[in-house]
């Protein structure tokens, strides 16, 4: 297949003396959907936050679309332009309308004229099915709607890779579905995605690979069928037995 668009090699990170990420090696090919799961505190968030340099790391290398991100985080800006991120707590800008949330980065980072940026943003808001709420403030929307706006906001920068850090964990059950549907749509359009989630249904349906982490290491990585049907490592089996009751 094609070259990896994200290549993580020998990644090590410490918080003080605490070794959070240990020798992580992970290649993500273009168009691949990877679900990362694991117990709380296993370093899932830390790992995907390293990919767009929200966290610094001490050893190893991350290459995103040919741009190299070493421990000195030299090409941060270039990498961030290629990588979109969706957070567990949405992190929409509460003082800006939905439309302004979606045009801010195109206007100020890519220097796109306001009119064009708004037209593009409306297209993405249509894709996540909330075009008629464009002039509302985030505080006036439901959690599911806010998370879909957050997805649209990340998409306006035309990222090559999308990172999701537990995008549905802060949502009520009926809203989880609308956000997952949006993510499935995105996957079907061929977006490269790294998703930290405990939604195993989503993993089964969408993922090309499931990565299981524990104690800062990748314990097991496999296709969803193999992963759920025949987990190899004892730790994986325990985790799955707890989560799939």
């Amino acid at each position: 297949m094609s070259d990896p668009i994200v290549k993580i090699s020998g990644l090590n990170k410490w918080y003080g003396d605490f070794h959070v990420l240990r020798d992580i090696d992970l290649d993500v090919r273009k168009g691949e959907r990877i679900v990362i799961c694991g117990p709380s505190g296993s370093g899932k968030s830390t790992l995907i936050r390293c990919i767009n340099a929200l966290e610094e790391f001490q050893e190893g290398e991350i290459v995103v679309d040919g741009i190299e991100l070493g421990p000195n985080l030299k090409h941060v800006d270039a990498v961030r332009r290629e990588v979109g991120m969706v957070f567990q707590s949405f992190n929409l800008f509460p003082h800006l309308t939905v439309l302004d949330n979606c045009t801010l980065a195109p206007i100020w980072v890519r220097n796109i004229p306001k009119k064009d940026a708004e037209a593009a943003a409306m297209k993405f808001l249509e894709r996540v099915k909330i075009p008629h709420q464009a002039n509302k403030f985030p505080g006036q929307m439901s959690g599911g709607q806010q998370q879909r706006v957050a997805i649209a906001r990340a998409l306006t920068m035309n990222p090559k890779v999308m990172l999701f850090d537990e995008p549905t964990s802060a949502l009520d059950p009926e809203m989880v579905k609308e956000v997952l549907d949006t993510m499935v749509d995105l996957a079907e359009e061929g977006m490269t995605m790294l998703v930290v989630t405990h939604e195993m249904g989503f993993a089964r349906e969408v993922a090309n690979r499931v990565v299981f982490m524990d104690a800062g290491q990748i314990i097991e990585a496999n296709t969803p069928n193999e992963f759920f049907a025949a987990p190899q490592h004892a730790r994986t089996k325990l985790f799955l037995s707890q989560i799939l009751r």
């Binding site: 929200l54 800006d77 961030r80 990588v83 992190n91």
Partner: peptide
């Protein structure tokens, strides 16, 4: 201001 605000902006590529 929550830390997430700055992180979201940074993730969008804002300086």
């Amino acid at each position: 201001i929550q830390r997430g605000q700055g992180e979201a902006a940074a993730a969008l590529g804002l300086s």
